[in-house]
Write a protein that binds this DNA or RNA. Structure first.
Lengths: 234, 234
DNA sequence: TGTATTTTTTTTGTCGACACAAATTTTAGG
DNA sequence: CCTAAAATTTGTGTCGACAAAAAAAATACA
């Protein structure tokens, strides 16, 4: 299990309890340390994090708001399932959010935004170079989150972040397939997007984001199809 | 105050407490019965609804997730303010959601969806005929929510519902200005949208939704400008 | 042996109480 | 009379306990 969950005997500041539980659970859910569909026992969790059930419950309510857990009335809350049947709605939404945030970033970015975006891109390039699939997933998210922040629209941003997190869970399922050389292409696409944003070239930014999204969606689809074939073969 | 808040001594089913508080507070916030920025006292609320603070707090956490209240650490939670300075981000997002949901509804609707949509439209037409501004706001929301449901994309739907609720709060502020004849136009536009959806004419549906959104945004902008002029005059 | 009913266990939803943080008021000093 | 420190008040964050609901186990009956 996640070692961040076991360290706890140290006194925490008052008020940080809920946030702590929220962060721990969120990480474990997105990292698939907690399997989708598995129940979350409040008492067990309370013992593990050595705190009362009250802050645990509040954290669970927040996670339910994020769609990361599902609360069954009078029954245990469970980690949200991945809905493979309706993945197309996910792909549709995340593609649109890739486009919209990149578009608006080209329109509204401030100089300091570019600094942040470039820093995230450097981290992503590093992860690709190291062939570190897990780091690639994380840094790719941060790169696009930085663009979304520059777009300065909290409504798009919050939906996009939610979709990126959902995607993180999906990619985790298949991250072993990242051994190929494809990710190098993403680095270049990112560079092109940064250039279009900097030039305030909205249409090009939109087009690049759209293609980038299609790339990623296609790759995830491939991973799923491949995995599905393997399952059938077994 | 809302009378739904005072009836409570009757026993409620176990488990419905949080939902009840959530619904009451949500309505009061969206109806501006609770002014934006005003603090919410947990103890006072607990007394008013005659229940313990625990379910109150959980409801507040959910509302915070919806962006309807803001939680200040160790300090009272306050009703979310209306951010007039960044209204353009709201208009941008809600216009896109009008378009996307109408588009996808034309693509994915099932026969029973049209029945629901038409029922909502009838209620909206009735409200316009009655010159009942408050009912117009509510039924207009339900009409577009029905279209969003037919679009069958939970990500778009949840964002759109959130934006519609935010819009409800905005319109409440200015609903006195609904005395003019403009709303009749909305009825016709709604009819056109239904026709385009039924014909599965995606492009027309998109175009109509876009124009409809522009209409509404323009009207809200007018209301704000008019109000602003009045404030300056005073 | 299989099914229906009762009993037990487990786990959630709610409660009242307490501790701590921040805001407010009071008091002390210049 | 004004400023700064101390004391008080107000309200949140967390806790342990209890009651109701659901699930699991045990029992009765055919």
């Amino acid at each position: 299990m996640s070692d961040s969950a076991t360290r706890k005997t140290t006194e925490r500041k008052r008020g940080s309890g809920v946030q702590f539980v929220y962060d721990v659970l969120r990480d474990e859910i997105l990292d698939l340390a907690l399997a989708p569909g598995s129940p979350i026992d409040e008492i067990q969790l309370a013992k593990r994090l050595s705190m009362s059930r009250t802050p645990i419950r509040e954290a669970l309510v927040r996670l339910a708001g994020d769609g990361l857990v599902t609360t069954l009335p009078n029954r245990s809350t469970v980690v949200a399932n991945i809905d493979f049947l309706n993945l197309h709605t996910f792909f549709d939404a995340i593609t649109l959010m890739y486009r919209v945030t990149t578009r608006l970033a080209a329109l509204h970015y401030q100089p300091e935004d570019l600094v942040t975006i470039r820093a995230r891109q450097a981290e992503f390039a590093k992860a690709v170079e190291d062939q570190d699939a897990l780091a690639m997933i994380a840094t790719n998210r941060e790169f696009h989150a930085a663009i979304a922040a520059a777009a300065r629209n909290p409504y798009y941003e919050s939906l996009f972040l939610r979709l990126l997190d959902e995607g993180r869970r999906l990619l985790r399922l298949y991250y072993s397939s990242f051994n190929d050389r494809l990710p190098q292409r993403y680095v270049i696409e990112h560079e092109d997007m940064i250039a279009a944003i900097e030039a305030r070239d909205v249409e090009t930014a939109d087009k690049l984001a759209s293609e980038h999204a299609d790339q990623i969606v296609a790759q995830i689809r491939n991973m799923i199809a491949r995995d599905h074939r393997q399952q059938i073969a077994l």
